[in-house]
């Protein structure tokens, strides 16, 4: 389907959902800015896209670089219609492992990087009175699962941050879309077994784009996760702590 957005910025674009989003959003009229750590991967993705693309190698934890880089990107594009933050990490955590270094990385990439980038976009879109902010979160943010404490916490915090942005910006004509995919087959989940109802990155990207197009406040991808997570959210804690999910 033809993209309704011309100038698009994707943070976390060199693989997985970000790469699939870039492929699906690109057409002859789009200009896509791809931001990610690995320059070689960015070049590979960009070379296969339709339309015009720009690449910016960047580590989202280099927070002090973000205001200047954001301004440069929108200048290079000549404007901005949508930003998608899809950078995320989920390192494997052992059953009895409490590793602060890993936790810090998770919070920095999944949450603080998002805040640093999306604050810039929120300022600009608020002034423009138009724009779409998409934060790719996860169903994991709905409950504190035993397997991934920091990852769940990072996504829960991201959800709340995005909700607050939405409440601030709705009145200004800016839509903020929180997307909560279930498990997606990406490099991040490679090697993990028994992931339920896993979908491809392409399917996830398609769901995210549909949610952005419809300006859905909070979208589960695929949609059936909404019912599942509704049930899971309402399981009493005393029971949930006994469940191995």
């Amino acid at each position: 389907m033809e993209s309704i957005w011309k100038n698009i910025l994707i943070v976390g674009a060199s693989s997985g959902i970000g790469e699939a989003l870039a492929r699906q959003l690109a057409n002859d009229n789009t200009q896509i800015a791809l931001v990610s750590r690995r320059e070689s991967e960015l070049k590979r993705v960009a070379s296969e896209l339709k339309g015009k693309s720009f690449i910016y190698p960047h580590d989202v934890t280099a927070y002090e670089d973000i205001p200047g880089l954001f301004q440069k990107i929108v200048r290079d594009l000549g404007g901005l219609d949508m930003i998608i933050y899809t950078a995320g990490v989920m390192p494997p955590i052992g059953e009895n492992e409490y590793n602060f270094d890993k936790d810090l990385t998770i919070i920095e990439v999944n949450l603080l990087g998002a805040m640093a980038w999306l604050n810039e976009a929120a300022t600009r879109f608020g002034v423009a009175g138009v724009g779409t902010i998409v934060g790719v979160s996860s169903v994991a943010g709905d409950r504190g699962r035993r397997g991934q404490p920091a990852y769940c916490a990072s996504k829960a915090a991201l959800n709340t941050y995005l909700e607050a942005l939405r409440n601030r910006l709705a009145v200004k004509g800016v839509s903020v879309v929180t997307v909560k995919p279930g498990p997606v087959a990406t490099p991040m989940t490679r090697g993990l077994d028994n992931l339920p109802m896993i979908i491809s990155a392409e399917q996830a990207a398609s769901g995210i784009i549909n949610a952005a197009r419809r300006k859905t406040r909070e979208a589960y991808v695929p949609g059936k996760w909404r019912l599942i997570m509704f049930i899971i959210r309402h399981i009493p804690s005393i029971l949930f702590q006994k469940m191995k999910i």
Binding site: G51, S53, P57, H58, D59, D65, L69, R124, A128
Partner: peptide
């Protein structure tokens, strides 16, 4: 299709770009 690399850089990816204050931002 065209690709532009803003800056060629190594693994140490850092940008040190000037920033204009956002209080001058306006929709014109």
């Amino acid at each position: 299709m065209s690709v532009k690399t803003s800056v060629e850089r190594s693994s140490a990816i850092r940008w040190n770009l000037p920033v204009l204050p956002s209080d001058h931002l306006e929709n014109v």
